[in-house]
């Protein structure tokens, strides 16, 4: 199964994604994407680590080249991985020196395919940042353009697409196999 969990900033999408992943398998991996750049990013990372504590996730750090990530083989019957998040990964690929630049969204999409091949279930978290009414710089426009394409391709491939608002799920797509959710 592939799930795409989207939401605004601080919408509760991570907590929802964790719950979803925990329902799917007891062998759990968490793919963390944020690079520690300053105290603020360190605080965000610490908050997420605290939130995951005791939930049985093994954390892997990967801020670039998801397509090249080789994970340990599955130990139990089913494994779930939680990728958090596609939008941070896109920022990394676009702006870090070794990133995929104008081919970032394609690189991340093949990275997601690579992850899918290595587990039973995959939950991908991404951001909704497409309704700002202020004038955008060309860089912001490029980021939104690539994130929009990435989200649309992920949504098309996903069995489940959920938008989280204030911690509450809005289901945009739900495969018949998931009726029990």
């Amino acid at each position: 199964m592939l799930a795409l969990v989207l939401g605004d900033a601080a919408s509760g999408k991570s907590e929802f994604a964790e719950k979803l992943a925990m329902q799917w398998a007891s062998e759990r991996y968490y793919i963390a994407t944020m690079q520690v750049a300053d105290a603020e990013s360190q605080r965000r990372i610490d908050r997420h680590r605290q939130m995951r504590r005791g939930k049985g996730f093994v954390t892997l750090e990967r801020s670039l080249d998801l397509a090249g990530l080789q994970m340990p083989s599955i130990e139990t019957a089913e494994r779930v991985a939680l990728l958090e998040c596609a939008s941070t990964l896109l920022g990394n690929e676009l702006y870090l020196p070794d990133g995929a630049a104008e081919k970032s969204w394609q690189a991340i999409l093949s990275g997601v395919n690579n992850l899918q091949r290595q587990q039973t279930h995959l939950v991908v978290v991404s951001n909704c940042v497409f309704a700002d009414g202020a004038s955008l710089s060309p860089e912001m426009h490029e980021y939104l353009y690539q994130l929009g394409l990435l989200n649309q391709h992920l949504a098309a491939a996903a069995d489940l697409v959920v938008e989280v608002c204030c911690g509450l799920p809005l289901y945009h797509k739900q495969s018949p196999l998931l009726k029990s959710l």
């Binding site: 605004d8 497409f130 309704a131 700002d132 009414g133 202020a134 004038s135």
Partner: peptide, 12 residues
């Protein structure tokens, strides 16, 4: 129509 009301109050 694009939704454009989802950001902070614009500066301009």
């Amino acid at each position: 129509c694009n939704s454009v009301g989802g950001g902070l109050v614009p500066v301009e």
